[in-house]
């Protein structure tokens, strides 16, 4: 029987996966506001469900899955928000980065996700 302080575990998970989840949510929802909602929702679910992960890959895969599900749910219920275009409010250091990020962002959802997960998350 192994027990670990739940709160410490959750803090650790937030620190570890914050960026990953937020970035993926951003790719899916194309909106900072929606991404924040998704981000919080993913961690709520983690805190509520406290799944037992067999490995780090499993842990990461679960979080990615939940992030995608939450993004989907949010977009389905926020159809109007989704319709509005993403403001170009993320700034990048170089023009290349700016161009490529927004180019990918233009792609349809499925392709964006695949590119992001493949290139970025492996």
């Amino acid at each position: 029987m192994e027990y670990i302080d739940k709160n410490r575990y959750l803090e650790r998970m937030v620190e570890k996966y914050s960026d990953m989840i937020y970035r993926l949510a951003l790719v899916r929802t194309r909106s900072r506001e929606n991404s924040e909602d998704v981000y919080q929702e993913v961690f709520f679910r983690l805190a509520k469900k406290l799944p037992q992960f067999e490995s780090e890959e499993h842990e990461k895969a679960w979080l990615i899955r939940v992030t995608i599900n939450c993004s989907k749910n949010l977009l389905n219920s926020n159809y109007l928000k989704y319709k509005s275009e993403m403001k170009e409010d993320i700034t990048f250091e170089t023009k290349e980065r700016h161009d490529i990020y927004y180019a990918v962002e233009e792609l349809p959802l499925k392709y964006r996700t695949i590119i992001h997960l493949y290139y970025y998350e492996n």
Partner: peptide, 19 residues
């Protein structure tokens, strides 16, 4: 380039703390 671009996006601490 894509990776570098994405790396620049960070979660701000306020959101982390709230969560």
């Amino acid at each position: 380039e894509y990776v570098d671009a994405v790396n620049e996006i960070k979660v701000d601490n306020d959101l982390k703390e709230r969560t």
